[in-house]
Design a binder for these strands. Sequence first.
DNA 1: CTTTCGCCCTGAGTGC
DNA 2: TGCACTCAGGGCGAAA
Length: 356
Amino acid sequence: MPELPEVEVVRLGLAPAVTTATVASVTIFDSRSLRRHDGPAEDFVDRLVGRTMLAPQRRGKFLWIPLSPVPPSPSPPLSPPPLSLAASHGIRPVTTTEIQEFRDSATVFPGQSLSDADGVPEFPEGKRGGGPDTAVPVEALTVHLGMSGQVLLRDRSVDDARTRIRIDIVHPALGLRRLNFVDQRIFGSMALDVLVSPVNGSGPTIPSRVAHIARDPLDEFFDDRAFLTKLAAKRTTIKRAILDQTLISGIGNIYADEALWAARIHYNQPTATLGRARGLRLLREVRAVLVRALGEGGTSFDTQYLNVNGQSGYFARSLNAYGQQGKPCPRCGQPIVRESFMNRGSHLCTFCQRIR
DNA sequence: CTTTCGCCCTGAGTGC
DNA sequence: TGCACTCAGGGCGAAA
């Protein structure tokens, strides 16, 4: 189940391969994976082909790849990647002819003029129209992995089962690569979205569909005090609150249970009576578990979560509560129990974690 | 406005 | 062996 650490592992894996790469062709195998795209599948393909990708970004469980403001015109020179670079990545060098054939196989549309696009917000500080050197991206390819989504980075011509969307790219150094968006249950999605200024006005731009999501606890601009204040004002229980992505993002069922266990807090503890000290303790444990999981490459129970190279993470062996029902609590030895809550499982030690 | 509910979706697992 | 059924849960629109 991809939560913040798993999505960050994917982002880190994608970064070197997609940054500065140009989209050569896009194939939609299942348009349900474009449910959150504002337009038909053809629109998604037409607007994406020919664009150059910039460094991938993340907030919570959302991942996005900003796109160069306008499709490069004319196309960048067709120079094969340096042999040494390609070889060091285990990639067969490609020829100029192959790259041209690859591009010709896709229908490249000129892309919309920015000034014609409806609903594209004005950028602050007048950065738009300042020439190629000062242009800022206004659009991004937004990705959410849902429950079973994967972005697999493959060599050319490699297919994966249950691929819903295939994006073939040309990287100036790495050559032809393929992004397979694989998603068994189709809870995830890809979409093209406009980038807007964040709600509080500071920091980099963010896709409009992600703008309502709160900053995640690993975000340098996350405001601990404001979070604790909002938490105290809630009329709900603590696990509901930390799963609420508009309050704090990136936490899913696994890391919610793990952080609550570490902080010795019961999932049904009312937020109004949690108190600031225990709220801060929980926030610290949330950060600790997210960072530890990130260091282990995320949590994989099966092949539902894999990094961009199709490899599992190792944090599952470090879980103290989630999925540990029947096993002794690592702290007190009492059995971990699984209770149904919010139509999902909550795993806890009823001895260590009590409502106070 | 805030909070909760129900739907989306597939394949592995379970019981008869 | 076969088949119906249950379960997993993030996000989002609708309902309360």
